[in-house]
């Protein structure tokens, strides 16, 4: 279940957005929350900062039990009426959003480090567009 992740620094996330943009934020409540890179509380904090610092319009916030289950995202009935989506899930969760909305830019607010194997870390390949 648990992939290893780290939060992308807020300063790097902030510069991906512009004043007046309508955005949606999606977070995973499993791996990323347990590693303090996602979850409802962090999502609220980042949403507040983006509104105050950048002036975005946060039109939707979604917490998924697991961001890598596409059915959960579908069930949340996410809006397509946004300029950008901020993903606070791992890169697998990022592909779920990108697959559903290929024409909407999806900002990856979490960096996926790999898959644990006891004391080792098996590195994963980054999809194009996730490294900020």
């Amino acid at each position: 279940m648990v992939c290893a992740v780290e939060a992308v620094p807020y300063e790097k996330i902030k510069v991906q957005f512009k004043k007046g943009e309508r955005i949606s934020i999606v977070t995973c409540n499993t791996c990323t929350r347990s590693q303090e890179a996602g979850g409802a509380k962090l999502m609220e904090e980042i949403a507040g900062l983006l509104v105050n610092d950048v002036g975005v319009d946060v039109v939707e916030e979604i917490v998924l039990t697991t961001g890598c289950n596409a059915d959960y995202y579908d069930h949340a009935n996410p809006t397509a009426e946004v300029d950008k989506i901020l993903c606070l899930g791992c890169w697998a969760g990022w592909t779920v959003i990108k697959n559903k909305f290929p024409n909407i830019p999806v900002v990856a607010g979490v960096r996926t480090l790999g898959v644990p194997a006891q004391s080792d870390m098996l590195k994963v390949v980054a999809p194009e567009g996730v490294e900020l």
Binding site: C68, D74, G114, V115, L122, K123, V124
Partner: peptide
């Protein structure tokens, strides 16, 4: 383990982020 996947009931598990 071969990487990270996405699951859906309709399509089952799919590998999206393979291990290097």
């Amino acid at each position: 383990s071969v990487g990270l996947g996405v699951y859906s009931k309709a399509e089952g598990m799919k590998l999206v982020i393979p291990l290097e």
